[in-house]
Amino acid sequence: MIPAQFDYVRPDSLDQAFRELASDEDTKVLAGGQSLLPLLRLRLAYPSKLVDVARLPELAGAHDRGDHVFVGAMTTHDEVMRSPVVREGCPLVALATATVADPAVRHRGTFGGSLAHADPAGDLPAVVLALDGVFVARSAGGEREIPAARFFVDYLESALLPGEILTGVKIPKLGDGWGFHYEKFHRTAQAWPIVGVAVAVRRTNGAIQEARIGLANMAPTPLRARAAESALQGAELGDQVRQACGEAAEGTAPPADLHAQPDYRRHLARVLTHRAVRTAAGAP
């Protein structure tokens, strides 16, 4: 299939990008294009203009900023998963990014692009939500920070305003004692997850002290499994953890689609959360 016509600009600076974005309300930001190009080809999107920000240096690379890692929005998945800064500072991001799509797509697709796409079935939104990442958005009017909990507004809808560009995401470092796992359940290697569970847990003396759980594809937005998180506080590996993870589907509103019905997704969320928590906690 063939995309419909659109204009294209590749601004040299963010300021120029803001001006281009302001020129027309059907203008869209083009990052790596790995989500957008298929939509254009299937003629499911008709932007009037694409503003290509992929090469803007301010949006590139992952940087250690002390208490957090700043991942520039245009850092490719491939760069993210190989970045020593990411692997050291927020290993869950590296783990999950390595499961995104396939190698060729990871070379082009970007961290910020897939987050701004706000697809609840994406791997990264659930991860950033679990880690309490902070989205940094800039516009002609200045910069603002949006906590992950407020970033994902609805299905394919983020809190970014017209004219705003996501410049990157701050991922807080969790420090020592934390373990991580991303459990992705899909029918084929390149299929979207039916359910994905991103987990970070801090464990001492056999018990979980703190757990953070992000769920992919369990609602129109990524969700935190808050009930399970609280139930896991102080839970010991074994029946207690199992029971706590039984709460993982509380408050979810999973979709019904070709690949699964809601009740099955809820079931999976419980099973996969249990597995992810155990793995993250280093259980044998």
Binding site: P38, L42, R187, T188, A189, Q190, A191, W192, L258
Partner: peptide, 16 residues
Amino acid sequence: LLTSTLADYLLPSAAD
């Protein structure tokens, strides 16, 4: 037809 693309009609890859 709900499986009109290869994103929905799942062909096995080497990894599967």
